[in-house]
Design a protein around this nucleic acid. Structure first.
Length: 994
RNA sequence: GCCCUGGUGGUGGAACUGGUAGACACGCAGGACUUAAAAUCCUGUUCGCCGCAACGCGAGUGCGGGUUCAAUUCCCGCCUGGGGCACCA
């Protein structure tokens, strides 16, 4: 009986489906385990081999936990709103809902192929009204709440309004605009609109103005990755910054809670670091500088003082005497009033330049640019006049949009000063070498008047105290994180449950939800950069918000909906969220480090604060899956330009490709005489075939690399026929081969057979897996060829799940062989059943229990690749022992279940079990079977292993030393020298130092 | 530019807390079975050197230094691949 994986997998998938084997009950009597994958965006390209990496890992873990007796929630769904579907709609006129459903169907088929244990009854789709009703509902919770800084949590905005009635806002500084301050009486006197405008500055979901990438030619707002070098990716039209009304989430109020929460969850240190850096909490000071302009009247200089000071934010007030210039952001509001007439044209020109630049470009730019405003800031301590510059590297959104330039202490400031010949003041003496800035805090200050001799670290406090005393500065905690933009000028997203009445945002009643996304005739943008909804007269007539929510809205809370997916009364019943609680294991890519993961943490905290759920961190443990990259293959086409005599008719030429091994860069490798001759010979043959003449010189040949579909390539060897049939224009192409029979002038590579045939090889490059690069591999093909079990184990065998690696199918056969070998422990091709009921030997039990321990440990620590090899070792050893005993094989099958469920169920049932192996009990490891009495110790002399000595494990250190030193080989290596030190690590090694 | 992360044989990778570098698998080479092929099995396989052989010598985990009896693992400096940087998801 052979291992017929196609039959087995089909049969058991059908059975499991029929029995509802993966249906999850809310069984409160069992311990729960919640294992979640980051749900996919269902793109039109379908699933490629990169997607399932994390899904397989979570599937294995889920099944393992089930065998360990847990009630496991393991759902899947779709992040179904998004830009690509809308783009597709614009281009093809297909409604996004329609293409999305089609894409979901494709995904589902592909997922089912691999045999996942998802409970599909719990599937969610963010684009369905039954789902986004609750996304809108949570938005209203955010809209109707503020962050109470005293209690450090979200509270109803109505309570805040009541508080204003009593005490004004004395106890609640305004997060949106710190200058807002009023008494109870003033509050009562405000009009309703004034009150609402003030409350808007407190709400957790609020409306404000923000800059977007505006493309006039396309009449739309562009995503950052649609903008390349200041122009639109499509069409190359200019893109500028434009201020639009936008919704935001006041995530900045939660900065500290988000930081503190990191200590309670198991994310990788790298991930925590990324989030910490993103939040970017810093302690510093805001300092006001008086601004003056010098007006030259020819004879004397007159100083004009501006009424507004320049407020800078700095983390290093101690360097105040080292400030040689100020830099303000090109968007800074003071620019207009402080720029001198002389500098005006230059400043305006510079600002125009900056407007075309993205934040990213501005920060990444190595070339220093900037422009002097003509104004000066006055150092409050010594009256020194400091020139005020504008430069793109200062962003308006961070701090006050103005910094003090301290060239001796900051590298970027240093480069700036050098570039514009601004004299550099050295305040750290020998710590500054005149070439590079030194950001130390440990130097003693010089040239710093009252701070001279003080260590910088200590000077920070002294300066702060002095500034506060003078009333021109204060300590300030700052965050790099900005409030999260929460609206898009798009169609395919959740509509906001908001109406605009006389400029006031009025939330819809909960009973009016869901506010359905209406049908539109056209998906193109509305007037003035508004979203497509602005094109619908009925929508506009109802004064409904025309923005829609961004992609991360639906994904910020979906993990809750899986617990109670069909509830129409509430987003998730509290008893269910109390039971299922946090996600115990969340698997997904690092690319979500600061987006999705931060937003869902925020939403969870708000829902917790408002009493809707009982925990304030969504994901107890996060496992990052590495990205599977594509390994692209290239063929090299000969470019003929300039190679033939001028009168030559190029149209007669066939398309010619050159094998990769014959090339050096984009030319023929003529340094190798053998290669040169091979190419010449073949080229002449081809030209002869086409009766062509007039070729000049082989050295002039250059080639162009073209992506070739990786499915036509075995390793690097091209399947010429498949390639020719790929596209009609390649049908009659010619190939210049390498390799060739003995005696040909080409040098043979080591490892190649002597009777090598001519071959054609491709070039390789690792790139992102993408349809356009022809490097995608569809899991369906592999499942068809090798089966789902093989595919699952192979993806795991590829390497650590959290590491990125290029996809390569070679090696999958090894895993397939392993499953066949496992099968042969049970069945012989001719004899049929071969398992027996004999008693297992100690040796066999040792093999089994070593495996139990290893599989348990490795699965718990997500080291799936080593678990697979442990299975291989086990099966190899059992084969060597010719062990076919049920006592050994049955526990083994249970262990294999989480990795390769289909074959396991088939073998389990073959052994005569009635129930499903999915519900078996994971075997218990017993140490008594694996204990060893002695160990083959490696013995090093001065750190180099020279021999091995078998010593009992219970030998004392003295005994070991005695045995070791008595050893003949050890004696030889010691050459009579005296023993300096004897190192013995029990169970590990011995090192003799002489 | 800034933040995070990786780099080990021909290839994917293993070595979990500083303790025998290369498990397991692919590939390759040789062999067995077979009329033949497939399938399967066996042997070898980091590189270099010596050799009849060795559990013989030397080098070796991106590069250069350091700490240690001992470094893939810890520290410093560099090179280089990947991810993110706020409207892709």
């Amino acid at each position: 009986m052979e291992y017929d994986f196609r039959k087995i997998e089909k049969e058991w998938q059908a059975q499991w489906k029929k029995n509802g084997a993966y249906r999850v009950k809310n069984d409160f009597s069992k311990p729960k385990c919640y294992v979640l994958d980051m749900f996919p965006y269902p793109s039109g390209a379908g699933l490629h081999v990169g997607h399932p990496l994390g899904y397989i890992a979570s599937d294995i873990y889920s099944r393992y936990k089930r065998l360990k007796g847990f009630n496991v929630l393991h759902p899947m769904g779709y992040d179904a709103f998004g830009l690509p579907a809308e783009q597709y709609a614009i281009e093809h006129g297909v409604h996004p809902a329609k293409s999305t459903v089609q894409n979901i169907d494709t995904f589902r088929k592909q997922l089912d192929n691999i045999g996942f244990c998802y409970d599909w009854d719990r599937e969610v789709r963010t684009c369905e009204p039954g789902y986004y009703k609750w996304t809108q509902w949570i938005f209203l919770q955010l809209f109707n709440s503020f962050f109470n800084r005293a209690t450090r949590k979200a509270e109803p905005i109505a309570e805040l309004a009541a508080e204003f009635e009593k005490n004004g806002n004395a106890g609640h500084a305004c997060p949106g605009d710190a200058s807002i301050s009023f008494t109870a009486e003033q509050w009562k006197a405000y009009t309703e609109k004034e009150k609402q405008d003030i409350l808007m500055n407190y709400r957790l979901a609020f409306c404000g103005y923000g800059e977007v990438n505006w493309c006039e030619a396309l009449g739309t707002v562009l995503a950052n990755d649609e903008v390349v070098n200041g122009v639109s990716e499509r069409g190359g039209h200019p893109v500028v910054k434009k201020k639009l009304r936008q919704w935001y989430l006041r995530i900045t109020e939660y900065a500290d809670r988000l930081l503190e929460g990191l200590e309670t969850i198991e994310f990788s240190e790298a991930m925590k670091e990324m989030q910490t850096n993103w939040i970017g909490k810093s302690y510093g000071a805001e300092i006001d500088f008086v601004i003056v302009s010098r007006e030259s009247s020819g004879v004397s200089e007159e100083l004009t003082t501006h009424h507004s000071p320049l407020t800078v934010y700095t983390t290093r007030p101690d360097t105040i005497f080292g400030v040689d210039f100020m830099v303000i952001a090109p968007e800074h509001e003071l620019i207009e009033s402080i720029t001198t007439p002389v500098q005006k044209p230059a400043v305006e020109e510079y600002i125009t330049y900056v407007k075309s630049r993205s934040d990213r470009e501005r920060q990444a730019e190595k070339k220093i640019s900037g422009c002097f405003t003509g104004a000066y800031a006055v150092n409050p301590f010594n009256g020194k006049q400091i020139p005020i510059w504008i430069s793109e590297y200062v962003l308006a959104g961070y701090g006050t949009g103005a910094i003090m330039g301290v060239p001796c202490g900051d590298e970027r400031d240093h480069k700036f000063a050098r570039h514009f010949n601004i004299p550099i003041t050295n305040i750290i003496g020998q710590h500054y070498n005149g070439v590079d800035a030194n950001p130390t805090k440990d130097a003693q200050l010089e040239n710093s008047e009252f701070l001279n001799g003080v260590v910088m670290r200590d000077a920070i406090g002294i300066v702060n105290a002095k500034l506060e005393e003078m009333g021109i500065g204060k300590k300030k905690v700052n965050y790099k994180m900005r409030d999260a933009a929460f609206s898009r000028q798009r169609y395919w997203g959740e509509p906001f449950p908001i109406q605009w009445k006389n400029g006031v945002a009025v939330p819809l009643n909960e009973t009016e939800l869901p506010l359905l996304l209406p049908e539109v005739d056209s998906y193109s943008p509305g007037p003035e950069g508004e979203g497509p909804l602005a094109n619908i007269p009925a929508w506009v007539a109802k004064e409904l918000e025309t923005n829609t929510m961004p992609g991360y809205a639906g994904s910020s809370w979906y993990f809750l909906r899986y617990m109670d997916p069909h509830n129409t009364e509430t987003f998730c019943d509290r008893t269910l969220s109390d039971y299922w609680n946090q996600v115990d294991l969340y698997i997904g890519g690092t690319e979500h480090a600061v987006g999705h993961l931060l937003y869902s943490r925020l939403w969870t905290k708000v829902l917790f604060d408002l009493g809707h759920i009982g925990f304030d961190e969504p994901f107890r443990k996060l496992l990052n899956q590495g990205m599977i990259q594509g390994s692209s293959r290239f063929v090299y086409r000969v470019l003929w330009q300039g190679i033939f005599k001028p009168d030559f008719d190029l149209s007669k030429l066939p398309t010619i490709f050159v094998s990769a091994g014959l090339l050096k860069g984009n030319k023929i490798n003529i340094e190798d005489v053998g290669i040169e001759n091979t190419v010449k010979t073949q080229l002449n043959q081809i030209l002869h075939k086409y009766a062509l003449d007039g070729f000049r010189n082989i050295e002039d040949i250059t080639v162009a690399a073209l992506h070739v579909d990786v499915n036509f390539v075995n390793g690097i060897r091209l399947d010429i026929n498949a390639f020719k049939n790929w596209r009609t224009e390649y049908q009659n192409s010619e190939f210049i081969y390498e390799g060739g029979p003995v005696g040909n002038p080409l040098k043979l590579e080591p490892g190649k057979k002597m009777d090598n045939p001519w071959v054609f090889d491709c070039g390789i490059e690792v790139e992102k897996m993408s349809k356009s690069k022809f490097n995608t591999v569809n899991p369906d093909d592999l499942v068809e060829k090798f089966g789902a079990d093989t595919f699952r184990m192979y993806e795991m065998f590829l390497g650590p799940v959290d590491q990125s690696k290029p996809w390569d199918t070679k090696g999958i056969e090894g895993v397939h062989r392993f499953l066949k070998k496992l099968w042969r422990l049970f069945f012989d091709e001719v004899k049929g059943k071969v398992w027996t009921e004999e008693k297992a030997t100690t040796e066999e039990l040792k093999v089994l229990h070593r495996t139990i321990r290893k599989i348990g440990e490795d699965t718990e620590r997500f080291s799936f690749n080593t678990a697979v090899s442990a299975f291989m070792i086990c099966v190899n050893e059992l084969s060597d022992l010719k062990c076919h005993k049920r006592e050994i094989l049955e526990p083994l099958v249970i262990m294999v279940t989480s990795y390769a469920p289909h074959i396991s169920e088939a073998l389990w049932k073959a052994l005569g079990n009635e129930n499903s192996v999915l519900d078996a009990v994971f075997p218990e490891y017993e140490e008594k079977y694996t204990v060893e009495s002695s160990k083959e110790y490696p013995v090093s002399i001065n750190g180099k292993v020279r021999t091995n000595i078998n010593i009992a494990l219970d030998a004392t250190a003295e005994q070991v030393q005695e045995i070791t030193l008595a050893n003949e080989l050890v004696q030889k290596w010691m050459e009579g020298k005296a023993l300096k030190k004897f190192i013995f690590v029990k169970g590990k090694m011995i090192n003799v130092v002489i």
